[in-house]
Nucleic acid binder design. Sequence first.
DNA 1: GAGTGGTCTAGACCACGTG
DNA 2: ACGTGGTCTAGACCACTCC
Lengths: 241, 241
Amino acid sequence: MGRPAGGEPRYAQVAADLRAAIQAGDFGEGAQLPTENALCERYGISRFTVREALRRLQAEGLIRRRRGSGTIVASPDQVLRQPLSDVAELLQYAAESEFQFKDCGTITLSGPRAEELGVAGGSQWLHLTGLRRMSPGGAAVAVTEVYINPALAAHVPGLRPGPETLFQQLARAGGFRVRQVVQNISAMAAGNAEAAALGIARRAPVLRIVRVYSDENGRVVEISVSSHPGDRFTYSMHIDQ
Amino acid sequence: MGRPAGGEPRYAQVAADLRAAIQAGDFGEGAQLPTENALCERYGISRFTVREALRRLQAEGLIRRRRGSGTIVASPDQVLRQPLSDVAELLQYAAESEFQFKDCGTITLSGPRAEELGVAGGSQWLHLTGLRRMSPGGAAVAVTEVYINPALAAHVPGLRPGPETLFQQLARAGGFRVRQVVQNISAMAAGNAEAAALGIARRAPVLRIVRVYSDENGRVVEISVSSHPGDRFTYSMHIDQ
DNA sequence: GAGTGGTCTAGACCACGTG
DNA sequence: ACGTGGTCTAGACCACTCC
């Protein structure tokens, strides 16, 4: 039957359970996962639901599947892997790194900057700035500018660093859901402020990732602009077929 | 019944049909697509198959879906959108741009370069170099180095620019299938050769995309290294939920 | 041949958006 | 209230891998 239980679909619960087991090393790297039928029995659910859960894990790059061979735990790859095919994966990345920020008041986004971000020129935004590290005290992997819709001003003082991303906290506090994230990646020369924050040379190449978060009505609720040093960050993706 | 017809799954045929209709403008931008049930009747297939087809189009960013509202044609966005969640989407991008290349013989990949690409040091590769433009005669959006497994040397002279990507042509000629693509994106300063080919300043920031194509046995069949001028290229993705 | 994941059917109930 | 897409069941046949 199509009951979503406590609000979360059953496949999401199963996916979370398997993800935790994989990351806890219960299966081991390269090890075989239980077959679909075994998972059906273990959780008492249909194959459809098991497959939906496994589909998510595969999209995250946690598992690899092959007809005839089975499902195996993927080898955790190289540098900084940041897969991306739905919002849940963005959260995964956020939970693995450390983010510190400070409130910078209100800012008006002007001509070229507004155009770059795809917002109306002259519009007002709440402005935060932050630094992301892969480990506490480690080298910064990103400096981030965050712009928040002023309609959400009341909830900004309650924002906390932690496993929850800013947009998750905003969504919960503001009573909306993030429905779409558009992400643009480009290469540019570091500006003075970025170079100073990251400890790199001026005009050094940086990877700039702009994310625009919109809610169900198409309202832009948050924009984040992250600049990553070219030599400390690689955006990694994989496609399996 | 589970018959894959002429080799291509039915949902892929339906997806291709709908994709063609959307791109031909049969529905118009922002227009409503037929409902799932309507598509079931039109194609004489089950809802499962219709949903699998729509799932692909949604991942490509061609449509947006919402419970209660229906399915609409997404507005074609900004600059150069290169979505990516399975191999089929890589092909889409390739078909929309123009790629010219020339054969440069054999090359040995040495220490740091080999490490960057994740191949054995001292291994030999066939080397091609190419230029990609969004329109014939237009400005170059990328300079590309291609390395091909020497075991496929016999098929290299048959490679042709066109709507089919190099790895598609290699797979067909070599009788294998590309099973995995790993893609790494980083920012770096342009080298002398890249700067000259792209007509940009030396040390200008470029977006470097390294793609490693592997077949079903994990054998690396092709590696492509594309360098995009920072000011002419943006890698764009979207996530809908 | 046995077992895997991939495709597909014909149903069902549900949450959500729009009237 | 109604129709939409989202979740879910219990089956089935198929292509593929491995023994």
